[in-house]
């Protein structure tokens, strides 16, 4: 009975078709299937010829770009770390250099100082020697003057006392006195 109804629908398509389910109208199946296959082939062409290669390429490219950028960032970071290390190293070197220069300067100054003080010492020494010499001279001069004065004084004393003074004896006596 149902097949009859469908057949009737198929035969008189249009006016009475509204009663039945259009989905079961077999007369339209070949038409639908034909156009479905056409549409599917068209979509398949779009997908395989355009969509998949294009989007696949874009996605791959994007992934590549991101990877590259990350790598570049990593590299830059490494470079920065390297630069910091180099800077620190340079700083340390400079510090060591400065310490060396300071030490050298100190040593120089010390050496100069030692030389200068040695020179000064030597001069002082020399001056001391000269001064001592002069003092000794003066002392010797003074001693001589003292003995002369004593001789003269003794001679005068002897003369005043009325004696005839033997110059030689007086000198010997004064000398002995002075020694004693």
């Amino acid at each position: 009975m149902s097949t009859e109804a469908v057949d009737a629908t198929a035969a008189a398509h249009g006016a009475t078709a509204t009663v039945k389910m259009p989905q079961l109208d077999i007369s339209t199946f070949d038409n639908q299937i034909f156009w479905l296959l056409v549409a599917l082939v068209a979509i398949y062409m779009i997908v395989t010829r355009v969509a998949v290669p294009r989007i696949g390429a874009v996605l791959a490219e994007r992934r590549g770009t991101i990877t590259n950028d990350l790598a570049a960032a990593e590299e830059l970071k490494l470079k920065a770390v390297e630069a910091e290390t180099a800077y620190n190293k340079a700083l340390a070197t400079a510090r060591a250099e400065a310490a060396k220069i300071v030490a050298a300067a100190k040593a120089d100054i010390e050496a100069d100082l030692a030389k200068a003080s040695a020179k000064a010492d030597a001069q002082i020494e020399a001056k001391t020697v000269v001064s001592e010499q002069r003092i000794a001279d003066i002392r010797a001069g003074a001693m001589e003057s003292v003995s002369e004065v004593a001789n003269d004084t003794a001679k005068e004393l002897v003369a005043v006392l009325g004696g005839k003074a033997d110059a030689k004896a007086i000198t010997a006596a004064v000398t002995a006195r002075m020694k004693g």
Partner: peptide
């Protein structure tokens, strides 16, 4: 309705194909 007749099925499938084409060909 023969198998080749242009029907509303054809029309709406064509619209679907055109929309897909627009999205995937013009969009990308």
């Amino acid at each position: 309705i023969a198998w080749y007749t242009v029907t509303n099925v054809t029309l709406w499938m064509a619209i679907a194909v055109v929309t897909i084409a627009a999205l995937f060909m013009l969009g990308t």
